[in-house]
């Protein structure tokens, strides 16, 4: 299990806007292991999508990757994706590392059919005859549970439902059998029945193809269902990282605890939900010290002055919080 295929180290992504420099991702480090589902959870605007896209440098203007490394293992050799020439990185995108984008409606080009856009993805990375690619595309659409794939392949995005578009995007992301799939909110835009199907599909793919998944979401339920390990992001930083059981059973960071208290537990009698007070901080002028202190019920003086160090509480469990600075380690 502990056999990493991706190591992200001290990643920083800043957006240079007119209002100021938005430090969307500010020193994020994590590893993704082979054949695991790595959950990246956090509120809207905490930088989880930017983190997942920065791995293959999919950062549009005015964003810039300031520093960091994203080491990806290709045939037991480590390649830094952030330094790779654009042309070589292109060959990795869409074949070894693929994406399911958040909003399937805007991810598909409205002027081309669903089948065309999958065929295009195949042909970008394989020397195949277009006719073979077409039948492979239909096969893929069948695998992502699209009814009548021969007909749907000829449909334009506007002729497909939201759930179907989501599955077309999923199809395009698995057609080249990636080693790492980045699923960004794969269930947010689809209704509940499709959500269940999507989860089922992703788990199947993981087991069948032995790929790793980075699951970007704000949905705790989805994390509990699918993830093996979880990183909790807050205001551009990973505040806690651990395996999924530890996160749910013994969350250490007050923010993680808050997140879990926000979710009703169906096995227990519902008493009260505890929302986290306040809102996500402004990332142009983030709070001094720990970025969570203005919302933290256990904030101390040091929290306001200095950013907390990363503390390894136990094997694979790291937390950035002053509460644990003196404890044990």
């Amino acid at each position: 299990m502990s056999d990493p295929i991706l190591k992200v180290e001290d990643l920083r992504v800043y957006f240079y806007t007119y209002a100021g420099v938005v430090k969307a991702v500010d020193g994020v480090s994590f590893e993704v292991y082979n054949k695991e589902v790595f959950g990246l959870i956090g509120e809207t605007g905490c930088g989880k999508t930017v983190t997942s896209r920065a791995i293959t440098r999919l950062i549009p203007d005015p964003g810039r990757i300031e520093s960091g490394r994203a080491l990806f293992r290709i045939n037991s050799r480590w390649v830094d994706l952030l330094k790779l020439p654009e042309d070589e990185l292109r060959k990795i995108r869409g074949s070894m590392i693929t994406y399911v984008f958040q909003d399937p409606t805007s991810a598909l080009d409205p002027l081309y059919t669903a089948g065309y856009q999958i065929v295009e993805t195949i042909l970008a990375h394989n020397k195949t005859h277009p006719r073979e690619a077409w039948s492979k595309a239909i096969e893929t659409l069948r695998r992502v549970l699209i009814p009548e794939p021969e007909i749907r392949a000829r449909s334009y995005p506007h002729e497909l439902s939201g759930g179907m578009k989501q599955r077309v995007v999923a199809g395009a992301s698995i057609v080249n059998e990636p080693r790492l799939l980045v699923a960004d909110e794969p269930t947010t835009n689809v209704d509940v029945t499709i959500q269940a199907q999507m989860i089922e599909l992703l788990s199947q793919l993981k087991n069948l193809k032995g790929m790793s998944i980075i699951l970007v979401t704000h949905n705790m339920g989805l994390i509990a269902e699918m993830a093996d390990r979880v990183a909790v992001m807050y205001a551009g930083k990973i505040v806690e990282i651990a395996d999924v059981n530890t996160i749910f059973e013994e969350p250490l960071h007050p923010y993680t605890q808050g997140l879990i208290n926000c979710v009703p537990d169906p096995t227990k009698e519902l008493k009260e939900l505890y929302p986290i007070a306040g809102t996500v901080p402004d990332l142009i002028n983030p709070p001094s010290g720990c970025r969570f202190w203005p919302r933290c019920s256990r904030a101390m003086d040091i929290c306001k002055r200095e950013a907390p160090p990363g503390i390894n509480v136990s094997e694979g469990h790291r937390v950035e919080c002053w509460l644990y600075a003196g404890s044990g380690l």
Binding site: L58, T98, F101, A107, P110, E120, A124
Partner: peptide, 26 residues
């Protein structure tokens, strides 16, 4: 060029001329 489908075309690793085809037609 700033639309999601162009970013997604990059994410799918399409070669530049194919990305251009999407951009120009739109």
């Amino acid at each position: 060029l700033s639309s999601d489908y162009i970013l997604y075309a990059h994410a799918r690793g399409l070669p530049p001329f194919r990305v251009w085809k999407h951009a120009l037609k739109n």
